[in-house]
């Protein structure tokens, strides 16, 4: 049994145009000098998501208002109990 080898492919129903001058350089299609257009945010999308130990910062800390609410409620209960 031989696996089918042949496949068909189309190059698209449209074309691609490049804005840069294709004749400008023989390394037009690739270069290892990165340019400023390389979006730095792509490289580390989780910036500010981890602490220095590499643990995720999930912002689990309760906000101060929630804290004060709880402590206030506790205080009220305790004062009533007395």
């Amino acid at each position: 049994m031989t696996q089918v080898l042949h496949f068909n492919v189309e190059n698209g129903n449209s074309k691609t145009t490049v804005v840069e001058d294709a004749t400008a350089s023989n390394i037009f299609w690739s270069d290892y000098f990165t340019k400023s257009y390389v979006d730095q945010t792509d490289h580390f999308p989780f910036k500010n998501s981890f602490d220095l130990m590499g643990r995720p910062l999930e912002a689990k800390k309760l906000s101060s208002s929630v804290h004060s609410h709880k402590s206030l409620a506790r205080k009220v209960r305790r004062s009533k109990a007395r």
Binding site: T17, V19, W29, S30, D31, Y32, F33, V38
Partner: peptide, 17 residues
């Protein structure tokens, strides 16, 4: 673009290897 097809904007090329 209907005439030009897909246009790779300035800065697309060269692609850093």
């Amino acid at each position: 673009d209907e005439q030009k097809g897909f246009i790779l904007p300035p800065g697309s090329l060269p692609i850093p290897i």
